[in-house]
Structures are given as structure tokens and as C-alpha cells.
């Protein structure tokens, strides 16, 4: 099968294109997928994460994948972040050190992810942030990763990729999984036929969690939401046919569904705000 992938930006349309790819390739079994990028005019580097998740699902069905006819500028970006080296392309040195390379982690690789993040964030804007926002940014990224670990059931792992834009002082990082998706977890928990968009909104409400055991949940996504709001950053969550963007609410992606769940974070690294508590909370009166 030859599939022509369109332009992939961190946008509703970009995610729609990836969902359409999965929709068309999902039934392939022990065949070949030739992903033709000749019509892809732009590719946001961080979007390699959800593309990686989709292609891992395709490969899991014994299909061979080739990525062909990549425009030079896009090839350069996707070789520098290491994505294309998974498909037979030579690695390209990231001399500007602006990429957070494409990486795939297993669900129990939390320590490996921590090492990756620490190594990759050095010299990429976070140290230039005030100590508080740098710390909260890292917490936010770990929250997203841990959310996938806890909820995704993604046996193919978790896919991470990012890009730092020094002139614009922003960092984009995307974490995608190839798991069961948010809707199925929320439906099973609530016992109702909730849509993907509503399921994402439900999960974003403080206190809402599909956890039922002794460990409470329902803080992480609300924490993320509040951080993005204060940082004037951006957050998109895509799962199934649900699409959420901070400030725009929850809606539908389109006719096709993106497997698993993807969280795309854009952090303003020039943020100098304090992320401490407004009120006088101390270790003595917190409980």
C-alpha cells in the first residue's frame, strides 16, 4: 500500500492526517506500507511521536514500513531528531542541540525516561527559566508520561519527541502511546457511552480519575491544565476521535480515530512567574 501523508503540524488538521493514516493502514497484515511524504510540505518535529505510535501499530501486524520521497528540509529535521533512522536513514548530527530526540520507552522505563529528560533538557531553555517554572515544566512533562504509564496499557510503549525553538523561547514536547485510549477507560469506569471529546474533558476535571483503588488520582491533568494556563502555553490532547486544545475546549477530530492518546505541550521558556502558592501554606498546616 502506498500512502501519501499530508502536512503535519501540531494542529487539529495535523492530527486528522495521522488518524486518517491509521484508518487506512489498520487492516494491513503482513504487507508493505510505503509512506510517501512528497505531499508533506511541513512536519512539526514533535509530531514524530504520534506518527511513531501509529507506525508501531502498523508494524505490529507484521507489515514492512518504508518512508520515501521525503522533502530535503523535512528529511533534515527528522534525521536530526533520530526518527528517520528507525526507517533506514542515516543519522544527522543535531549541532544546534535543539531537538529532543524521538524515543520509545516501555511502560516500566520511568527511570530511563527521567534520564532522557534530564539529559535532553540541559541547554534547551529550561535552565534559562526561573527556577520555579523550570521545575514546574519538568513536573508537567513527568505528569504526562506517568499518566501514560498508569492508564494507557500500551504494550508497544510510549513515544516521545520534542523541539526547542530558541528564538521564540518555546519548547514543544509530545508524548504519545499506542494504548486503549481515554474513552475506553472512562466508559468502563462511568458505565456510560461517553464520546472521546467528553471523556477527555471528564479526565481534565480536578478530582476525576478512573482509579478505583487505594491510591487517589485526578490531580495530574488538572495540574497540567493550570500550568499551561498560567504559562500561556499550549496543550492538546488527542485520543480516538476526541480533540482537546487548551482555551478551545473539547471537540471531535473528524471521521477517523487516532489510536491511544497523545498529549502535546508547548511551554514558554521565557516565563518568569512564580509558581508558588498564593496563600501562606506551610509544611505545618498542609494536612
Amino acid at each position: 500500500m502506498i500512502y501519501k501523508l499530508g502536512t503535519i503540524r501540531s494542529s487539529h488538521e495535523g492530527f486528522e492526517h495521522l488518524a486518517q493514516l491509521w484508518s487506512d493502514a489498520a487492516l494491513l497484515f503482513s504487507r508493505q506500507l510505503e509512506l510517501d511524504l512528497s505531499e508533506c510540505e511541513f512536519f512539526d518535529a514533535n509530531m514524530a511521536a504520534p506518527l511513531g505510535a501509529v507506525l508501531a501499530l502498523v508494524a505490529d501486524k507484521f507489515n514492512r514500513i518504508e518512508i520515501v520521497r521525503v522533502r530535503p528540509a523535512i528529511e533534515n529535521v527528522l534525521r536530526r531528531n533520530g526518527f528517520l533512522t528507525n526507517y533506514g536513514y542515516k543519522a544527522e548530527e543535531d549541532s544546534g542541540r535543539t531537538t529532543l530526540p524521538f524515543a520509545r520507552f516501555q511502560l516500566d522505563d520511568e527511570r530511563l525516561f527521567a534520564d532522557y529528560l534530564k539529559r535532553q533538557l540541559e541547554g534547551k531553555g529550561i535552565p534559562r527559566m526561573t527556577e520555579g517554572v523550570g521545575k514546574v515544566s519538568q513536573q508537567s512533562i513527568f505528569e504526562v508520561f506517568q499518566n501514560s504509564v498508569t492508564h494507557s496499557e500500551s504494550r508497544l510503549g510510549i513515544f516521545v519527541c520534542g523541539q526547542f525553538y530558541p528564538h521564540e523561547q518555546r519548547l514543544n514536547i509530545t508524548i504519545a502511546d499506542a494504548g486503549v485510549g481515554i474513552r475506553s477507560k472512562v466508559r468502563a469506569y462511568l458505565g456510560s457511552e461517553i464520546s472521546s471529546g467528553d471523556a477527555i474533558c471528564w479526565a481534565l476535571q480536578g478530582g476525576n480519575t478512573t482509579r478505583t483503588g487505594r491510591r487517589p488520582g485526578g490531580v495530574g491533568l488538572k495540574f497540567l491544565h493550570d500550568f499551561v494556563e498560567r504559562n500561556h502555553g499550549k496543550m492538546q490532547i488527542v485520543s480516538g476521535d476526541g480533540f482537546y486544545e487548551h482555551g478551545k475546549g473539547c471537540g471531535t477530530l473528524g471521521l477517523a480515530e487516532l489510536p491511544g492518546a497523545t498529549v502535546n505541550l508547548e511551554i514558554h521558556t521565557a516565563d518568569t512567574q512564580s509558581y508558588r502558592l498564593d496563600s501562606e501554606i506551610t509544611a505545618e498546616n498542609i494536612f
Binding site: G132, V136, F223, R276, L277
Partner: peptide
């Protein structure tokens, strides 16, 4: 740190309600 105390406050308040 004050930032971590802020997060702990959220966790504690949420746990009480949970």
C-alpha cells in the same frame, strides 16, 4: 520547595475528597 508544597497541598485536598 514552595512549588512542591503547592503540589502536595493539591494532592492532600484531593485525597480527602477522594
Amino acid at each position: 520547595s514552595p512549588e512542591d508544597l503547592a503540589l502536595l497541598k493539591r494532592v492532600v485536598d484531593n485525597a480527602k475528597l477522594y
